[in-house]
Every structure is written in structure tokens, then in C-alpha cells.
Design a protein around this nucleic acid. Structure first.
Lengths: 123, 123
DNA sequence: CTGGATCCTGACGTCGGTGTCAGGTTCTCG
DNA sequence: CGAGAACCTGACACCGACGTCAGGATCCAG
């Protein structure tokens, strides 16, 4: 598959795919002329990368995990990394859920006829 | 309260407080010499701002909501904004929860003795 | 074999929240 | 009143994922 097709199917830009490769997150073979060719699983890999980005992992962290993800090679370090990131994500989600509750409270107050809105006290 | 004290209590930098004011998110009075003075509720406001930042709202969005949050003045627009942001946050949290499940699956695979780890297929 | 579509590298730009530095003013305590 | 701590504005730097442009090479259908 050529890079443009991967980009379209995965819903990302060509630029991003080159960036992922530069960061060591995505592999490709090259034609004799130097153009990238991808296997069918590339689209799924890109999806995973995007998902991990969205969860706040950095390129460097994802790269450290790639051997584990890619070949099932897990070291004590990679397992630690995984657990650390999961813990971080857990806490992050918890915080967001508190924010969501707060947003809900704000909506209720905003929709109530009562004009008093001491949002800031509800810390 | 002086700016340094607010910063310390709220756990943010002085720079950030000045930035929030520049963005119209945080009010202060000024001494005759031009230094900022804050009320006791400033710390709570900063907490709210940080929380909304963490939930992915931009300065501009938070600013639009300030009249509602601050004085309980809610317009149809601000209610729309609130609902839009809550919906966005809901979807974002849902995505993160899927990522969390995936991370959990990855951890299980990494800790299993079975070296086969087709993470990417579990899309 | 050719021309238009696609791809290549390298480089600089962007955005948003914040760090940091310079050079100067204000506050507060003894 | 003096000195040191705290504050002021303005400006530039940074990070990370990606946009965008230039100038050129490659690919493939006809």
C-alpha cells in the first residue's frame, strides 16, 4: 500500500505517517526508488498510535513500548511502563469524570431560573 | 492576597496567573502602585480554570463561559457551549476508557508467558 | 515512453500554555 | 528611611504533533 492510501484509510495526514516513522513508531519498506510501501496492518497500527497519543503518551513512550506491542517481547521495563501509563490514565480519567460532574452541575445551574451560581464554591 | 501567595496556594506559577488575567479568565484589583491583589476565592477560581484546561477547553472557550460561571448569567449561547463541551468530554472519556481497556489487555499479554502479542488486531 | 499523479527530503511555521530573562518599580519590615 | 523581597511589563524560548512549501524524483496507465 502506498502512503497516501494508508493516510486516507487511517484518517490521518501523510505528514503524520512520515513523522511516525521518523519517531520509530511505524515501519515501512521502500521501493527501489525510495518510496514507502506498507502492509495491510499499517492502518491498524496507526489507529493504535493515535489512540495512545490521545491518552497522553508521548512518542518516546510509545516507541519504548513498540517491541512489546510489535513482537510480544516484554521486558520488566516495558511491563513497568505499561503499568505506569495505565495508572496515569486511570488518574487522568478520574479527574475528567470529576470535571464532567462539575460541568453537569454547571449546566443544571445555568438552566435553572435561579440566577445564583456559586460554581467556584463547589470545589 | 498577593500574586505569589495565590500561586503557591493554587500550585501554579505566577506566570500562569498573569496569563490567565491576560486571557480574561481571572480578575484582580490593583494597588495604587499597580500590583495585583486577589480575593480569597481566587485560589478556587484557579482550580476551576486548571480543571477546565485539563478537560481540553481552550482559554477562549473558558472565557466565553466566565459570565455564566462568575455571575450566574446564562445565555442560550453559554448553555449551548456548556452542553457542547460536556458532550465532547463524554466522548473523550469514552475513548480513554477504551484505551484503558486496551492497555489492560496489553498488560495481561505482556505478563503472560505466551509470547504472541497481536495487539494490533484487537482494534 | 511520457506525462500527470504521487511521492521524496528538508526546512521552517503554528499553536497554547508556560518558562525565563532583563530592566525597572513597589511594597513592607525593621 | 533604607534594603531586600516581591512585583511589574515586555519579549523571546520551548515543546510536540503536525501544516505547508520548495524543488526534485518516482511511479504507472495509456
Amino acid at each position: 500500500m502506498r502512503i497516501g492510501e494508508v493516510a486516507e484509510r487511517a484518517g490521518v495526514s501523510v505528514r503524520s505517517l512520515r513523522y511516525y516513522e521518523q519517531q520509530g513508531l511505524l515501519e515501512s519498506t521502500r521501493t527501489s526508488g525510495g518510496q514507502r510501501r506498507y502492509g495491510d496492518d499499517a492502518v491498524s497500527w496507526v489507529g493504535l498510535i493515535q489512540q495512545l497519543y490521545a491518552a497522553g503518551l508521548s512518542s518516546a513512550t510509545i516507541r519504548e513500548l513498540m517491541p512489546c506491542l510489535h513482537a510480544g517481547v516484554s521486558t520488566p521495563e516495558s511491563r513497568d511502563r505499561l503499568r505506569t501509563e495505565k495508572t496515569r490514565l486511570d488518574e487522568y480519567i478520574s479527574g475528567l469524570e470529576r470535571t464532567r460532574e462539575r460541568l453537569e452541575a454547571m449546566i443544571e445551574l445555568a438552566e435553572a431560573p435561579n440566577p445564583h451560581c456559586p460554581v467556584v464554591l463547589g470545589r
